[in-house]
Design a protein around this nucleic acid. Structure first.
Lengths: 138, 138
DNA sequence: GTACCTGCAAACAATTTGCACTAAG
DNA sequence: CTTAGTGCAAATTGTTTGCAGGTAC
């Protein structure tokens, strides 16, 4: 699990400016277990930064992805979700309600999948689709 | 591998009309190894159906997905790709040129992944991201 | 002081939708 | 004949972009 200071340090090291917005975004993402969308982040951050914009959110999130601190999930066809968890894992997406859950996966399994291609794999996603128990029972 | 007639039969059985457009779309998808986008399909189909529309393509493709004959891939953040191959396999996406390739995967492996969740998994995608050899060498 | 960053609004692009017309059965 | 399907154009929506002003360093 990465921590806020580590990321801010690395940002600085790479020559990026430590703006209040970037700090706020990193802090808000760090350690959380859900997978917020840009919209969700925007609403949450508005409390601290009433003027924050999608432009800033998207650009910061892309920065964090390039640095390997988060993954941008395309499991939901409608919008991207951000996943700040570093540990190797798969995702389950409920096709009815949109619920998005982490699923544990062994590192060994992940490595095996990454090596499926003869090309060098930089990142990997395993997406499972179905109905969550609640949606299945009605 | 499914064939054109099987699909058309099943469409009829389910009460859908066998329009020329649907036949053309099914024929064009059946057996192909690449992963066309809506745009690509549209261009190709225009030769036979100069008036064909995106509305028809999207609706037919959704129908085929519901019937389990193709998968709609979200590996490319920008647009969806259609995959008419039924056999279990993963996908590799080149982050630079957008090349999208099939990767073989054993059925055993697929089943294992599908069972990672306690919920019933209806479908599964394994996406590998990286650079293809060509993009890697320049 | 000077890049770089931010916020705003406009632009973009893939997909969806409403509706009048057409054609399958 | 009836109803589902089609094509068109407009609408929608998540994301990106251009640019003027602001801020980190």
């Amino acid at each position: 699990m990465w921590n806020v200071d580590e990321i801010l340090d690395k940002l600085k090291t790479r020559g990026y400016k430590l703006t209040g917005q970037r700090k706020a975004i990193v802090e808000r993402l760090c350690g959380r277990k859900d997978h917020p969308t840009a919209e969700q982040l925007y609403k949450e951050l508005k409390k601290d930064y009433p003027t924050i914009s999608f432009a800033t959110i998207y650009s910061t999130v892309q920065l964090l992805e390039e640095m390997g601190y988060l993954q941008i999930l395309t499991i939901d066809e409608k919008k991207t979700h951000f996943d700040p968890t570093w540990a190797a894992h798969a995702h389950f997406f409920c096709q009815k309600c949109g619920r998005l859950e982490d699923i544990e996966m062994e590192q060994e399994e992940v490595d095996k999948l990454k090596n499926l291609s003869e090309y060098r794999t930089q990142s990997l996603q395993v997406y499972l689709y179905g109905l969550c128990p609640e949606c299945n029972n009605r």
